[in-house]
Design a protein around this nucleic acid. Structure first.
Length: 917
RNA sequence: GGGAGCUUAGCUCAGUCGGUUCAGAGCGUCUGCCCUACAAGCAGAGGGUCGGGGGUUCGAGUCCCUCAGCUCCCACCA
């Protein structure tokens, strides 16, 4: 029988490699989980715990930022699933209109096809082809990471339920008067040739030039220039006695659109220009000098050229002063016919050219270096955004700000970390209307149909779910009673991508198309949203708006903001720098568990993550540790006749307490979304407490078996540890859980219940900790004195200290004889140990170096004397004794008495050491 | 220009209500070990005037003021 067992074990040992190989387990278990539909959720009697994925771009690929976000979501989901919740993590992708359309346009360009040569239908065919080819790659990558998404629910922001939701919402908001069409100064992306919302424009500091241009006074013959002679007056006269104004501009290429020059009425420098007209340089157009307090007297020369078509401020000035608006740009950023000059050339080229031409015409005073901010499309960082006046669709935002602010301020939605509440509030309190139309084809086409109108007549349109409804609505309009469908023309524009993702938590469960259905009632509101702070306005705020508007309730209770993943030098990860590792390669190299742990180790909520491979290595090492711990336990044979020894009994009692204590800590961390702290607590529990102390304490001597009780308890502990680790490292924990005991098909660790904290014996934990310090002290003596760990030592311990855990000390410190003494006998040669208030002594005979021991003891004495002094200073202070809580005073008194005892012992040691000299 | 945040060990960071021997953790470093679970490991050790200054308090890493440095967000000064 015994031989059989050994034989059996040998076979097993061969199967159980000495190193953990993630490649052999990960795909296997993921497949198993999928087969058994463990990720799938249906409404039932359990409470729901729901996360909707912030949908990544459909054609995107996994980067380190995703790894961080998705790992956190999976940890939360797996933890909830094991904690009795019906966990549902809904995956999906975003159609990302601008980004995807740009990619499709790029691909077509490679094929020699221009978008403008295609019809909308033709273009969309290509776009869908692209989506089918590249779409969803990222979802497959999430599977490699181990994400337990409910794949049966995979959605796409442009699939038909989501599209229908968007259409319904658009019509509804229009009917409520919240969507309007208006002529506004908007941000135009000349490359993508679409407008952008204010949020989609990112400003970059740029070194640019400030051009000082001459605007000659045009009406001097009929309206002579009269210097005022005021102090501070600045006149410009050229060699021929002609007066001119100097205008500073960063954009000389816009002078063709100038329709006025503006000065501050209070500016003494430019008083003489009042009431005059000036000539736009090169262009020759005569424009009035207007006055407005808007102009900064200190900037440049105090003269501002006003180009109402191409600058927001100028546009506003134009409105106030009734100025003409000359749009000199084509949609692609080239100069239009209206410019009259440089027609067809790119605005940036014209800027360079016009500077030369102005200089040649002696109209350029000077050029200065100037730092300013230039807006770029968030999606396209190489083409500057152009302010442009055009007619677009807008969503009135004040109403949404009003409904979205209270839940966050009142704490119905909690932000982690809380600092983002301020950011959120600030944005909502200064909200601007949301420009929701985009001049793109890839996206939800705006459900508005224009009616034929006479030349010059104001546009007429109807908003409806489909053309039939549109026709019905149109026919109700006076004069259009007999209109046919063919006469209606649908708006060409699409909606902003975020106009679909803001509905995501509602639309995923049919809350828009089928309000009040079973799923939306069960899953909504969802639990947590995990995302980066960069999309707090784009996504988080708007989801709250959408939820409040359509469900009259918050979309989620918690928002966990992750930081940005940077390299270890603190730089953002970017393709240009090449500092972004490919997550899939990392997974192949280290295993998904290691990558997940590596990401979590360094990520406290809201802080940027400085990623370094060493963290993933640490994750891999942890896998190795878990693996080997299992190998050890697996190796042990039960010795049926053996009775549990004292060291094992104590260790079992202690670890049980320690486990319970840590489980409570972990639960607390989870409640506070301190995921990396939870992980670290489990990591230390496993590595330090379980492996370094517990396993060593119960480990049978070489060649011996283990008693039945201890092995059973050890396996229990190991299983509890696997469960604790599982949310973070799903694969290795499943692998070992399956090996730990016989399992049936369909068994899985991911559906076991997460450990719940039981009672823990605080006193025992404290004693055990003291014992480990004592053991360390003995080991330290061994190292210093070069005594082998196998050479038995005698340990004298004063009083009955650590009696409960004595057996452990004996075993782990290699103590052959542990003697209890009333008072340590310092007459013999040895090394004294002081652990807290515990005094111990290791007799060493001639191994001892008296001089060294003396030095050590004297240093200790010095420290304790100083310590005693500071404690007594406190206790001597009447205000402290009266003012501080009793508990604090009591600890100080205990410190005093402990210090006194310690000092006495040290003095005794020193005396006896001196006697030995 | 407005707002938020950060500064604690070589690195990355915890430090909750102002009070335990509270100055911590992980990684790295140093020293000694291949001892049949694990060298991707074991054992042990060293390391900090808590950014500077001031204040409140019996007591400050923690609260207040101030200075310095860094980061991020928002904003229409050409």
């Amino acid at each position: 029988m015994y031989i059989c067992r050994i034989y059996y074990k040998t076979i097993l040992m061969e199967e159980l490699s000495s190193k953990y190989n993630p490649a052999l387990t990960e795909d296997k278990w993921y497949e198993y989980w999928l087969q058994h539909k463990f990720f799938h959720s249906e409404p039932d009697s359990r409470p729901s715990y729901t996360i909707v994925i912030p949908p990544p771009n459909v054609t995107g690929i996994l980067h380190m930022g995703h790894v961080l976000n998705e790992t956190i979501q999976d940890v939360l989901i797996r933890h909830a699933r094991m904690s009795g919740f019906n966990a549902c993590w809904v995956p999906g992708t975003d159609h990302a209109s601008i980004a995807t359309e740009a990619k499709v346009v790029g691909r077509l360009a490679g094929m020699g096809i221009r978008k403008r040569d295609l019809t909308r239908e033709e273009f969309l065919k290509y776009a869908w082809e692209w989506k089918e080819e590249h779409g969803g790659i990222i979802l497959e990558q999430l599977k490699k990471l181990g994400c337990s998404c409910d794949w049966d629910r995979t959605a796409f922001t442009m699939d038909s339920p989501r599209s229908e939701s968007v259409m319904r919402v658009f019509v509804d908001l229009y009917d409520k008067g919240l969507i309007y069409r208006g002529l506004r100064m908007v941000n135009w992306d000349p490359k993508a040739q679409t407008v952008l919302s204010t949020e989609e424009v990112v400003y970059r500091d740029e070194k640019s030039k400030l051009y000082y241009l001459r605007y000659y006074v045009a009406d001097a013959d009929v309206n002579p220039v009269v210097p005022t002679g005021e102090e501070g007056e600045v006149l410009h006269i050229d060699g021929q006695g002609r007066y001119y104004a100097v205008v500073a501009t960063t954009r000389p290429e816009t002078i063709m659109g100038d329709t006025a020059m503006c000065i501050n009425p209070k500016d003494p420098k430019n008083q003489w220009l009042r009431g005059h007209k000036v000539t736009v340089p090169l262009v020759g157009r005569v424009i009035p000098v207007i006055e407005d307090r808007y102009v900064d007297i200190e900037f440049g020369t105090g003269c501002l050229k006003v180009t109402p078509a191409h600058d927001v401020n100028d546009y506003n000035l134009g409105k106030i002063h009734n100025l003409e608006t000359i749009d000199i740009f084509n949609p692609d950023g080239t100069l239009s016919e209206a410019a009259g000059m440089y027609v067809g050339r790119d605005r940036m080229d014209v800027r360079k050219q016009i500077a030369l031409d102005l200089d040649n015409a002696a109209l350029l005073e000077k050029i200065e270096d100037y730092d300013n901010k230039v807006g770029y499309s968030e999606r396209n960082q190489d083409t500057a955004v152009e302010p442009r006046l055009c007619k677009q669709w807008f969503l009135k935002m004040q109403h949404f700000a009003d409904i979205a602010l209270p839940p966050v301020l009142e704490g119905k939605i909690q932000f982690h970390p809380t600092k983002y509440v301020t950011t959120y509030r600030n944005w909502l309190e200064n909200i601007q209307d949301w420009c929701i139309s985009r001049q793109l084809w890839w996206g939800h086409r705006i459900p508005a149909w224009f009616l034929p109108t006479a030349e010059g007549e104001e546009e007429k349109f109807v908003v409806a779910l489909n053309v039939e409804e549109a026709l019905a609505k149109a026919r109700k309009i006076k004069g259009y009673e007999n209109i046919e469908a063919e006469a209606l023309s649908r708006d060409e524009d699409a909606l902003d991508t975020w106009f679909s993702s803001w509905l995501w938590p509602v639309s995923l469960f049919g809350g828009i198309n089928n309000p009040g259905n079973e799923e939306i009632r069960y899953y909504y509101p969802t639990s947590d949203l995990v995302t980066g702070p960069d999309i707090i306005f784009f996504l988080v705020a708007r989801m709250i708006m959408g939820g409040e508007e359509y469900m009259k309730d918050v979309p989620f209770s918690n928002v966990y903001f992750t930081g940005i993943v940077r390299d270890k030098l603190g730089r953002k990860m970017s393709k240009q720098l090449g500092n972004s590792p490919d997550p899939l390669k990392l997974i192949a190299q280290y295993g998904a568990d290691a990558v997940r742990m590596g990401m979590l180790l360094c990520s406290s909520a809201g802080n940027d993550v400085l990623y370094d491979d060493s963290q993933v290595e640490q994750g891999r090492n942890f896998c190795g540790k878990i693996w080997n711990a299992f190998r050890l336990i697996d190796l042990w044979n039960v010795d049926e006749g053996k009775v549990q020894d004292e060291a094992s009994a104590v260790a079992v009692k202690w670890f049980e307490s320690k486990l319970n204590e840590t489980v409570a800590t972990v639960e607390d961390h989870f409640r506070k979304f301190r995921i990396s702290d939870a992980l670290m607590a489990v990591y230390k529990l496993f590595w330090d407490d379980f492996c370094a102390w517990y396993l060593e304490a119960v480990k049978p001597a070489y060649g011996e078996g283990i008693d039945k009780t201890t092995l059973a308890r050890t396996k229990e502990f190991f299983e509890a540890l696997l469960k604790l680790i599982h949310p973070v490292m799903p694969f290795i924990t499943e692998e070992l859980w399956q090996k730990l005991a016989p399992r049936k098909d369909g068994d899985t660790i991911m559906l076991q219940s997460y450990p719940i904290a039981g009672d823990s014996d605080k006193e025992l934990i404290a004693d055990f900790e003291a014992a480990t310090s004592l053991v360390a002290a003995v080991r330290n003596i061994r190292q210093q004195k070069n005594i082998s760990p196998r050479e038995p030592l005698v340990l004298k311990v004063e009083g009955s200290a650590l009696k409960d855990v004595e057996a452990v000390v004996r075993k782990l410190a290699g103590i052959s004889e542990l003697v209890r003494v009333d008072s340590v006998n310092y007459d013999e040669a040895g090394s004294s140990i002081l652990v807290g208030t515990i005094k111990a002594f290791v007799p060493l005979g001639n191994l001892i170096n008296v001089e060294e021991e003396l030095k050590k003891a004297e240093a200790d004495l010095l420290y304790y004397n100083g310590f005693l002094e500071s404690v007594r200073l406190k206790l001597g202070n009447e205000k402290f004794v009266c003012g501080a809580p009793e508990k604090v005073v009591a600890t100080e008194r205990k410190k005093e008495s402990d210090a006194l005892a310690t000092i006495a012992a040290l003095q005794q040691t020193i005396a006896s050491l001196k006697a030995l000299k």
